[in-house]
């Protein structure tokens, strides 16, 4: 809650930082914002090529490239947020030692810029859904709470790792490898549906499993959410957020002396 209050108080700076992040990223590029969609789209093509055409896997009743794309969008948001926010504090060493503002604005602006990419990709996904006439049901509305959970979870992990990176630069070095491992532990190129209970339970230790799996389920398959699972994940993610954001606020005061 503290973090939300501080961001609201410094909202003008926050808006400008998000704008700066977004503007700088696509400045001097030829295709500009199209980069946002390009990476998940090319991954999607790769997965479809390997799994559908080479390994002849059938992952869904609808075209499999949509299956992969729908998993890649939340994943890309998570991975890009971590990648951008972990070095965000140390990169702005100049700013942190020279001026006061709530330090979380830096990782949060990186996450918000990644969120804009997420919505650009979501529009592309909806175009696919329209073209391939995948029927939408009311269950698709579950998408909104799932997006909120995804944002809160991503924010907690990003703040924690970005803060820790100020003290231990190991975090930055370990993050590539960590994100790669995390990718295979998340149901982006597979679905947990067909697995046995033991495996499912193991994969559900990763909150992203629940989020990505259910995003696909409610949007593309028109299925509902298991309510007790939803409630459980909500509690887990809330606890995560409270603990990790407190940790961040606690260590934030010393950033200028340590960085």
């Amino acid at each position: 809650m503290d973090i939300i209050k501080r961001v609201i108080r410094y909202r003008q700076l926050f808006i400008v930082l998000v704008w700066r992040e977004f503007a700088v990223r696509y400045r001097y590029t030829i295709i500009g914002v199209m980069w946002a969609g390009l990476q998940p789209l090319s991954m999607m093509l790769l997965f479809t090529f390997i799994f559908t055409y080479i390994m002849k896997l059938k992952v869904s009743s609808y075209p499999s490239f949509i299956f992969y794309f729908a998993g890649l969008i939340p994943w890309t948001f998570f991975a890009h947020s971590l990648n951008a926010s972990i070095p965000s504090l140390t990169n702005h060493y100049q700013l942190i030692t020279k001026i006061y503002f709530p330090r979380e604005l830096l990782p949060l602006s990186s996450i918000t810029a990644a969120l804009l990419d997420f919505f650009i990709c979501a529009v592309i996904l909806f175009v696919f859904i329209l073209i391939y006439q995948i029927p939408l049901t009311w269950n698709a509305l579950w998408l909104f709470p799932l997006i909120v959970l995804l944002i809160i979870f991503t924010t907690s992990v990003s703040l924690f790792l970005a803060g820790l990176n100020v003290y231990y630069r190991d975090v930055r070095l370990a993050s590539n490898f960590l994100i790669q491992l995390w990718f295979f532990m998340s149901p982006v190129m597979y679905s947990v549906d067909s697995l046995d209970t033991k495996m499912k339970l193991m994969l559900f230790l990763n909150p992203l499993t629940f989020i990505i799996e259910n995003m696909r389920r409610v949007l593309l398959e028109g299925r509902g959410i298991v309510l007790w699972q939803m409630a459980f994940v909500c509690v887990v993610i809330t606890v995560f957020y409270v603990v990790l954001s407190r940790f961040f606020i606690k260590i934030e005061r010393a950033f200028a002396d340590v960085i």
């Binding site: 808006i15 400008v16 930082l17 700066r20 503007a23 700088v24 001097y28 700013l95 020279k98 001026i99």
Partner: peptide, 18 residues
């Protein structure tokens, strides 16, 4: 503080000002 080399002077006034 916060001037970004790729942004113009006018844009940086917004960044620095906020």
């Amino acid at each position: 503080a916060g001037f970004h080399p790729d942004l113009t002077g006018r844009e940086n006034i917004y960044v620095n000002g906020t």
